[in-house]
Amino acid sequence: MDFNFSEDQQQLRDAVRRWVDKAYTFEHRRAAVKAGGFSRDTWAELADLGLTALTVPEAHGGLGLGAVDAMVVMEELGRGMVLEPLAQAFITGAVLGQFAPEAVQAQWLPRVAAGESIVVLAQQERRARYRLDRCEAQATRNGAGYAVTARKSIVPIGDKADAFLVPALLDGQQALFLVEASAEGVSTQGYGTQDGSRAAELQCNGSPATLVTTDGLSALELAVDVGSASVCAEAVGVMEQALLTTADYLNQRKQFGVAIASFQALRHRSADMKMQLELGRSMSYYASLQLGQPAETRRRSIARARVQLGQSMRYVGQQAVQLHGGIGVTDEYIISHHFKKLTQLEMTYGDSLHHLGEVSARMRETAGVME
């Protein structure tokens, strides 16, 4: 099996890396955080690069590329800790492409691909505790259409989005709906998040909605798995940059007249950071490669990947701060932002303890038994 990236994938990586290095410097990011944590102009730049169209089928104006291409992009965006949640475009493309009626696909996917409409997943409820099968939102039939009443939390750029993918119970069964931000009864309350990005509380009060699918749980599981694979890839990019920044600091900082990179204890800790990065990278590859598998296999694989990525993110983030000493916790220095980004990613779509429970629940009776 060939594990090398194709020439097209390498070119894609290079193009995104050049954009991050040139257009998304640390100073640019700090300014974006102060401006609210999201920029339509930056989203338009991502669209101009073709990234919002990456996984949208060609029949609907997209590039029709796959999970590995999305992984490559998210790694590079992670290097710059880009605030704009491009993963939401990947989620929307996957869910609408596999579950939505053709008319809904034709209406929304070209707009998502062009970057004209931002559709985000709004699934988190206060009592759910990361459980996807727990849903209190309600949907009713309203003439020829549907109406949704729901309260969702921590919706990515919720007060800036154009529409939402909202799970809700329809006749006692979880379905998935698309609710436009401009619909009657929709309100949002935006706020900044720990890593400098933006989220919102979403309230729908009998809001008109478009039915995506009555198999809402399966669609939601796919959405969260695509999001989790994106989290893994983004985390790899953040960890890689944190390690490089730490190595540069150790080579520049001197004590007793020599660079502290020469101290054996610090060299060992740097080596452990590199090991955790590579463990995380391999499991990120695993997660992306498993997205096309049947649901049970895919869910089990994503949970495994998230357990390892959670361990890697926590270790690399903590060591990076500690090896920098006091400067590592200052807002003016980039490593503190790496740490905050990794901390938030570790809890996105379920923290490590949740995913460890998922791995345990999905273990087969023959786990660990040699046949």
Score class of each variant (00 low, 15 high):
residue 195 D to G: 09
residue 243 L to R: 13
residue 331 D to F: 04
residue 360 S to K: 12
residue 17 R to L: 14
residue 201 E to L: 12
residue 95 V to H: 09
residue 66 G to D: 14
residue 339 F to C: 04
residue 153 S to N: 13
residue 80 G to V: 07
residue 25 T to L: 11
residue 150 A to D: 05
residue 343 T to W: 12
residue 197 S to N: 04
residue 13 R to F: 12
residue 39 S to M: 06
residue 326 G to K: 10
residue 301 S to A: 15
residue 151 R to A: 02
residue 336 S to I: 03
residue 170 L to N: 08
residue 142 N to T: 09
residue 135 C to V: 15
residue 366 T to K: 14
residue 198 R to F: 05
residue 144 A to M: 00
residue 230 S to Y: 03
residue 270 S to W: 00
residue 363 M to G: 04
residue 323 L to N: 07
residue 30 R to C: 06
residue 90 F to Y: 13
residue 261 A to M: 10
residue 205 N to Y: 00
residue 113 A to Q: 03
residue 211 L to H: 08
residue 180 E to R: 14
residue 281 R to H: 06
residue 104 V to Q: 00
residue 297 T to H: 06
residue 326 G to W: 01
residue 295 A to V: 07
residue 146 Y to D: 05
residue 38 F to P: 11
residue 213 T to N: 01
residue 180 E to G: 07
residue 235 A to W: 04
residue 104 V to R: 06
residue 321 V to A: 10
residue 6 S to I: 10
residue 164 F to H: 08
residue 275 M to Y: 02
residue 127 R to H: 09
residue 294 P to S: 08
residue 238 V to E: 05
residue 95 V to Q: 11
residue 126 R to N: 10
residue 371 E to V: 04
residue 330 T to Y: 14
residue 181 A to G: 11
residue 257 G to C: 06
residue 2 D to G: 12
residue 91 I to T: 07
residue 112 V to N: 07
residue 212 V to E: 00
residue 79 R to I: 00
residue 179 V to H: 01
residue 136 E to C: 09
residue 104 V to S: 01
residue 19 W to F: 15
residue 125 E to L: 04
residue 233 A to E: 00
residue 8 D to S: 14
residue 174 Q to S: 08
residue 108 W to C: 10
residue 330 T to W: 08
residue 146 Y to A: 06
residue 258 V to T: 09
residue 269 R to M: 14
residue 118 I to V: 10
residue 269 R to L: 09
residue 44 A to I: 00
residue 18 R to H: 02
residue 165 L to Q: 11
residue 68 V to D: 13
residue 319 Q to H: 00
residue 199 A to Y: 00
residue 57 P to A: 13
residue 166 V to S: 08
residue 78 G to H: 11
residue 361 A to L: 09
residue 192 G to H: 09
residue 123 Q to R: 12
residue 206 G to Q: 00
residue 211 L to T: 01
residue 119 V to A: 01
residue 212 V to M: 03
residue 185 G to R: 03
residue 314 R to Q: 12
residue 93 G to K: 08
residue 61 G to A: 03
residue 227 G to K: 09
residue 32 A to N: 11
residue 61 G to D: 02
residue 184 E to S: 12
residue 229 A to N: 06
residue 296 E to D: 13
residue 21 D to R: 15
residue 361 A to H: 12
residue 190 G to H: 05
residue 361 A to C: 07
residue 247 A to V: 08
residue 146 Y to V: 03
residue 270 S to E: 07
residue 240 E to H: 11
residue 332 E to M: 02
